[in-house]
Nucleic acid binder design. Sequence first.
DNA 1: GGAATCACGACTCTTTCGGTCGTATTTGAA
DNA 2: TTCAAATACGACCGAAAGAGTCGTGATTCC
Lengths: 133, 133
Amino acid sequence: MLRLSKRVEYGLIAVRHIAALHVGTVVTAKEISDRYHIPFDLLAKILQRLSKSGLVIAQHGVKGGYSLSKSPDQIPLSLIVNAIEGRQVVAVCISEKNEDCRISETCTIKSSLFKIQNNVDQIFSTMLLSEIV
Amino acid sequence: MLRLSKRVEYGLIAVRHIAALHVGTVVTAKEISDRYHIPFDLLAKILQRLSKSGLVIAQHGVKGGYSLSKSPDQIPLSLIVNAIEGRQVVAVCISEKNEDCRISETCTIKSSLFKIQNNVDQIFSTMLLSEIV
DNA sequence: GGAATCACGACTCTTTCGGTCGTATTTGAA
DNA sequence: TTCAAATACGACCGAAAGAGTCGTGATTCC
Ligand code: SF4
Ligand code: SF4
C-alpha cells in the first residue's frame, strides 16, 4: 500500500541518469542496465514508455540510445510517473471514468480521499527532475 | 501503485462512523458492516487491529461494541492507517530495518524518495479525524 | 549485409490483497 | 446457570497486481 512500483523507481533512476549527461550525448538501455544493475528487459520496456510519451527521445540503430527531450527543470516527477504507470489514484472511485467500487453509494470518505489525492499529486508535480540529479 | 488498501478505506469509514456517535454509545461491527455494505469478517478484523492499537475501545459480550478512545481532534489519520497496516513506506529501503533491495548500492534516488516519504507522512499526520466526520 | 539498438506483446512466476472460515473467549441477560 | 451476542485470532484460499523473461520485428549505422 502506497508503495512505488519498481518500474517507477527504475524509471526515475534512468531518467535521472540521462538528465545528468552532457546535452547531445545519448545513452543506451544496456549501459543504464549495467550501471545500476537493473534487469535489462524490464528497463527497456520502461524506456519505451518514456519514449512513447515524448519525455525522452529514442535514437534507433547502432550508436543509438536515449536522450532527454527537454530541460530537467521543465520536468516534474509527475510527468515521469504518468509516462510509466499512467495516472495513479489513491482510490478506484477517483479515476474519471471507473466507478466499480461496490460500496460507492454509502461511502462517507470520498471527499477526504479527494483531498489526499490532491496532496499526493502536489508532491509529484512540484518536485522537478532538476532537483534530483 | 500508491493505492490505499480496502482495509484502510473500510477502517476510515468505520472510525469516522464511530466518531460521529454520541459519546458513551457503542456500535457493533455488524451494524457498521450492514450500514456501509462492508464484508463483516473483514471489517471485524480491521476493528480488532484498531482495538489492539488502543485507538478504539472494544466492549465484549451482549450489548457490546466499539467506541472511540479519545477525541476525534486528537486523532490524525496516520494513527488510523498505522494501526491497520503498520508503518507504510514508498520504498523498501526506507523501513528502518529491511535492506533487501538488490540495487541499493548503486541507487541514486534514495534521498529523493525520502523527501517523498516525508511529504506523504505529512499528509496523513496533519489530517485529523475531526476533519472528516 | 550485418550488428547494434529500440519496439512490442505475450508469457510466467511471485507477492500482495481481499475475503472467508473455524474456533475460542468474554459478557450480559433470561 | 445457561445461552446468545459479541469480540479475538489465525489459518486458509482465490484473484489481482507486480516483477521479470522471451520471442520477434523494425530501424539505423558501418
Ligand atoms: S467509494 Fe469510498 S470506498 Fe469505494 S473507492 Fe471511493 S473512497 Fe474507496
Ligand atoms: S534503494 Fe533505490 S531502488 Fe532500492 S528501494 Fe531504495 S530507492 Fe528503491
